[in-house]
Simulated assay, not measured.
Amino acid sequence: MESFIYTLIREADWRAAEAAGAYHGSSDDRRDGFLHFSTASQLRASAAKHRAGVADLWMIEAEASALGHALKWEPAAGGSRPGLFPHLYAPLPLAAIRRAIPVTLDAAGAHLFPPEIP
């Protein structure tokens, strides 16, 4: 599977994670019982579907191998999107995060990602 996985979190949630030493998830994550992640090739579509126009996001890049057995590769709910998605059934420790960068929007409201995100 992928070496790195990605999630987009709101600024306030990122600041809370920094203070707590771990990210415990959004309200959607808590509802579903796991933290939602994407691979690099899934991130743009996930952002467009679930975070369209949201400006206060941070892209979190985590080392998949640091997450152990709590990381599961599963289909999207209802099979609505092809492929397997990384789901973390535990809080995300800050030690597993390789980088966290703010994600801005272009003039059309699309998220601007680093060049290595296809």
Rank of each mutant, 00 (worst) to 15 (best):
17 A>M: 00
18 E>R: 14
18 E>V: 13
18 E>C: 15
18 E>A: 11
19 A>H: 06
23 Y>S: 10
23 Y>H: 12
24 H>P: 03
25 G>S: 05
25 G>V: 01
26 S>M: 01
26 S>L: 04
27 S>I: 03
27 S>L: 09
27 S>F: 08
27 S>G: 12
28 D>S: 09
28 D>T: 07
28 D>W: 14
30 R>F: 10
30 R>M: 07
31 R>T: 15
31 R>W: 09
32 D>F: 15
33 G>I: 02
33 G>S: 05
33 G>R: 12
34 F>G: 06
35 L>N: 01
35 L>E: 03
35 L>D: 03
36 H>T: 14
36 H>L: 05
39 T>I: 05
40 A>N: 03
43 L>K: 03
44 R>M: 07
44 R>E: 04
45 A>L: 13
46 S>Q: 15
47 A>E: 01
48 A>W: 13
49 K>F: 08
49 K>W: 08
50 H>Y: 13
50 H>P: 05
51 R>N: 12
54 V>G: 02
54 V>Y: 00
55 A>P: 00
56 D>L: 05
56 D>R: 03
56 D>C: 05
57 L>Y: 10
59 M>H: 02
60 I>C: 09
60 I>N: 06
61 E>H: 04
62 A>M: 05
64 A>Q: 00
64 A>L: 13
65 S>D: 13
68 G>K: 14
70 A>E: 14
71 L>Y: 11
72 K>F: 06
74 E>A: 11
74 E>P: 00
75 P>Y: 14
75 P>L: 02
76 A>G: 09
76 A>Q: 07
76 A>L: 09
77 A>I: 14
77 A>P: 11
78 G>W: 04
78 G>T: 13
79 G>N: 01
79 G>F: 01
81 R>M: 06
81 R>V: 05
81 R>G: 01
83 G>N: 04
83 G>D: 04
83 G>Y: 00
84 L>P: 00
85 F>R: 09
86 P>A: 00
87 H>M: 13
89 Y>G: 08
92 L>Y: 11
94 L>I: 09
95 A>C: 10
95 A>Y: 03
96 A>W: 00
97 I>V: 15
97 I>D: 02
97 I>M: 13
97 I>Y: 10
98 R>G: 15
98 R>N: 12
98 R>C: 12
100 A>M: 06
101 I>F: 03
101 I>H: 04
101 I>G: 09
102 P>N: 12
103 V>D: 02
103 V>Y: 13
104 T>N: 14
106 D>Y: 04
106 D>A: 08
107 A>F: 10
107 A>G: 10
108 A>N: 09
